[in-house]
Amino acid sequence: MTQPAANHSLAAERAWDAASAVPDPEIPCVTVAELGILRKVVVENGVAVAYVTPTYSGCPAVLAIELAIEAALLDAGFEARIERVMSPAWTTDWITPEGCEKLRAYGIAPPVKGSNSKMALFGETVVNCPRCGSSDTQKISEFGSTACKAHYTCRRCAEPFDYFKCI
């Protein structure tokens, strides 16, 4: 994918290509760009600065992600720096359509866009099974194997699966 905000310099484009290819350490089927964690890369005086927005507050992978991006930029011949951007807060709506499709193919139900998880006491979100596509699924636990996932099971194909929590 290309850098969202048009950046004209060739160096910045090369830096973006290097940084954006870094896979997420916990869900390696998607890249940091597809997850929307990597916001932009600029090159100033030969230093590539990657702007990174952390996902969940308690995500232990944040540091690993930043180090991986830094390493990718160094490999591409840049001096590198990471800027952590807290605001605006990352949201699952920033995961690209390709990212969602890769998550599904990997067996993780992608977040439901604009779902009701913002509030909805006693509310339920309909999550489709990433394997058979059935909407006849059941939430096992709001909290799954990592900070970003909830645990579901499919009533039709009987497979358990992870759902990428919508924030």
Binding site: Y56, S57, V85, M86, S87, P88, A89, W90, T91, S117, K118, M119, A120, L121, F122, G123, E142, F143, K165, C166, I167
Partner: peptide, 26 residues
């Protein structure tokens, strides 16, 4: 601005805590 950023995430995370704990209390 920094607090808005922290809050944007925390609000959605706390919605999970709220729903989860409410369901258990019921």
């Amino acid at each position: 601005e920094t607090l808005r950023g922290i809050a944007g995430k925390a609000e959605k995370e706390m919605a999970y805590h709220l729903r989860h704990s409410a369901e258990w209390v019921v």
